[in-house]
Amino acid sequence: MSADAREGRPALRHRLAERGVDRTTMLVLPGVAFLLVLFCYPFVYGLQLSFQPAEGGGPFANYRTFFEDPYLRETIWLTLRLAVPAALINCLAAVPVAFRTRGVFRGRRLVMTLLVMPITLGTVLTAQGLLGYLGANGWFNKILTGIGIIDQPLGLVHNYWGVLASLVISGFPFSYLLTLSYLTGIDPSLERAAATLGASRRQRFRHVLLPLLAPGLAITFCLSFVLAFAVFPSAQLVGDPRGSTHVISIEAYEAAFQQFDYPMGSAIAMIMAAVMLVVVALVLTWRSLLYRGATGGKG
């Protein structure tokens, strides 16, 4: 330390402090260790495993198999087709609902509990509910046929729509809670200021709230998307796992745990990760173009 000082260089401690590193920062170390053990190690292990195909053919044989087989290749598209709309719906639906529930009003607690309830249900219960409610013999179809709006029950489960509904039900509470916290972080006097400057309700939303909310919405979208992209149980239970909801995680599961081809399973998992990374990177790149500073609120 004194040697540093003599050379006219600030001591290490000060240089670290300038970058915001102090003793409290060290508290992240257990977290980093956790991350290494639970995420990085399996990732690296899986990555190297994916380059050791069970049946030989060079390190990229698994990847070649995946991309050469249209049935396998198509799973990427089928999954994106579910995950992107689900994430979008979750984000877009969360905004108005968060908007309505951000203030203080009577029964707020009850409304919030109801909105967040689906988290506690879990995918299997949700699937069961969907089957019972939307299935061919479910109330929904029974009521519609009963009052004569339709002759044939609508096919709402065991197809694309069933899985999408399940993803929205299980994903919405997360995006709602995230959006709500971003929204309440915006200083309410900004909207009031905009109002006194002549901005109508719509203009206030468009020119003040939305720009301040957009970075948070980008994060919400990413989380929602990642959650939906790994869809597995609902694709099996309320979907059409051999057809329109033949999602990528089903393939990974079958390769690893039904054919016991771990290298192939790993390769598919790596492809999943890569697709998610691409989408998240695209969204975050867009986000980096936005204003991301303080929103003046209580945070």
């Binding site: 400057l197 002549g198 109508s200 003040v208 720009p211 929103t295 003046g296």
Partner: peptide, 20 residues
């Protein structure tokens, strides 16, 4: 009349400038 149609200007204690 809603605030946006009163034509009154307001200066807030915390300034309330649009940060973006």
């Amino acid at each position: 009349v809603p605030p946006e149609r009163r034509g009154f200007g307001m200066v807030f204690q915390n300034y309330a400038l649009f940060p973006h």
